[in-house]
Design a protein around this nucleic acid. Structure first.
Lengths: 211, 211, 211, 211
DNA sequence: TATGAATGAGCTTTCATTCAT
DNA sequence: TATGAATGAAAGCTCATTCAT
């Protein structure tokens, strides 16, 4: 009996509702920004009462974290897979950039929401998303896939890359990638894949040891 | 009477108060983030009542815009001056990056506040800061100085730069520069000038026509 | 069919569930106080869903009243029995106090819950528990056993007691007895029986005609 | 200038508003009980908006504490004065009871509210009023006046009182006194002073060493 | 019988804004 | 110029209750 029970203790309907709410949350964040994202607004997006959201998520904070986790998880999986398919450091860097922006192109809303949250969300204790990632939040295993430093260190050690400060380069690459989300929100016609190609070339030239 | 009236219709004291309020606003935004920046908090920062702020600025929005304008103006002046001192496109790009980050290093509070506003502030109509810049807001004349496109176009035309999409490169450069503010807010010991040097090299290699 | 139907129309299981819910309700009230006693919390105490409670009781108010009735009934039976075993007024008074506190000692949870309800519960119309007892609520027959006035009147008539106002004395005795519940909730080590002995002496001296 | 400034930094009007709010709070608590006492209800009692209350008091908890303090302070002053006018332990006990009930009679609303708060109020951390009094809350100096134990100890030491457990007797006396508030709320015609006379006799007989 | 899902009223609190002084 | 006072809208959240299954 109870054929509607999934292994993780959630019914099928429960999971569907949660997914619907997460989607609506991403939509509202992407459209209005995090500051104007209220539970009431999210509820209205689906056409239900506020209470529904608090029935499925303990509070606003855990809703937001669930969204973050959800997008991270899927993104990290895609990016990690693409990166590990490559064997040279420069190949991995190219794959990293491409896969990131491919994910952005394929999941515009999620990517946008995540970038918005990255700059505007704070935990009740005042921590930013990146400060969260470093410590308290249990993050998907594959999240290591989002870290550029190992790639840079490998290329520097092997001599494939010129000498540079990996932390600084990491910031430049990540911030450029994250900009795509903003561009997309401003201009729905923004060509993410063309942008990806430009970034690949740009950071290839910027990191490679000159011959 | 009113011998304390300046040409623009503001008394000296009036101007001093406004400056004090703008400074306090930047301080609070830099410390708490825009979301937690309330008029009450700004007033407390100076030790006056909330009313004072609304006496000098029509509403919260115009206070924020005044701050943006103020920082932009000073930043654009510094950057414009540095850029125009150079004559090659690559020289101008280097100067642009250096001057930007020099400004960030020299005016940490302002830079931090501006970056925070760049990601979190929205006009009552829902526009972001950069969407503002493009249209509605009357911006300081020198703001053109913040635009990278002329530099890229010049370098592309002259053959100094390799072929690339100026808009994409502009995004990469600006986002990398703006990241410095975030880094600074997370880690007060962040070495902005070292970061500047890395970026200069990075984007020099990324833009130059290979020999 | 329905061979499990009892004379009063309730199945055995039904009665067991009701008893379980009443017990859980008393536990929660005793632990958290009435203000923080929610149906959800009671349901959690048993490990069932909220709906179960509202299936067995029409609404929260009738659940609470059922608990009150239940405890009253058992308490009144015990006290009435003890009182009627005595034949002098002063003997009855001593028995009343002792039996009350004996019940408190033997059913700490119930007594605690009842005291808490006595001060915090109000009907939807705003009536307190004691205002209820006087009028609206159909109370167990034996409840008369809780009334001190007949005892005082008997002692006054027979000359066993000194002259005093029975209503005032009743208030003093009842409030002292009810305090035991509070003491118990604040200090689980509170010695109810020692307290009972003190009260017996106290009110014996306070009521007896001096010789 | 600023002739409306009082020594403690509150203007006359501010103090008047605070007093008005405290009074309204006591009224609502006395009428509806603490559980149904909301800021909205208090505001309506005065005919102002909810915000007014939160302008004058940081939050609901500090409003309630201010009320408690205020009533305590006045009550303790009156009781302490009456008690210290007596020199025998039994005289002090009589004065304690009389002064308490005299205060109740003279400030029905306050007394009622305080009794209600005594049983229903909990701090955000879950502490009851009496647990508060023992530790965290800075209470008026004269509060010691509310403690019966010194009186009992004195009478026991001097031999004026019979042997009894001071803690238990204290509970009996205090609970009897506090009952007056409840009686008053149920029956506005309740004769507090007659009740006081009964209690004085009752506890005189209960404590005195028999001759 | 029991559950999960949803609702709606009400709560405390924050905040930009207005206004009289 | 500046302040204190007040307002009202909106926020996150709790909870008894209803309903379909």
């Amino acid at each position: 009996m109870r054929s509607d029970t999934e292994p993780d203790g959630q019914t099928f309907l429960e999971a569907a509702r949660r997914a619907q709410i997460l989607r609506a949350t991403a939509e509202v964040i992407a459209e209005l920004g995090y500051a104007k994202t209220s539970l009431a607004r999210i509820a209205r997006q689906i056409g239900v009462s506020k209470g529904v959201i608090l029935y499925h998520f303990t509070d606003k904070d855990s809703l937001i974290r669930a969204l973050i986790w959800d997008v991270y998880e899927r993104g990290a999986a895609a990016i990690g897979a693409a990166v590990s398919r490559e064997h040279s450091a420069s190949g991995k860097l190219r794959a990293y950039i491409s896969a990131n922006l491919e994910f952005t192109a394929a999941h515009r809303l999620d990517a946008l929401a995540l970038v918005e949250l990255g700059s505007s969300y704070r935990t009740p204790e005042g921590l930013r998303l990146d400060q969260l990632a470093e410590q308290a939040m249990p993050l998907p295993h594959g999240l290591a896939a989002l870290d550029l430093l190992p790639i840079f260190q490998e290329g520097l050690r092997s001599g494939e890359f010129r000498e540079f400060e990996p932390a600084a380069m990491g910031i430049a690459v990540r911030s450029a990638i994250d900009s795509a989300g903003n561009c997309l929100s401003r201009d729905p016609g923004f060509d993410v894949r063309a942008f990806a190609a430009e970034l690949v070339t740009t950071f290839d030239l910027a990191t490679r040891r000159p011959t």
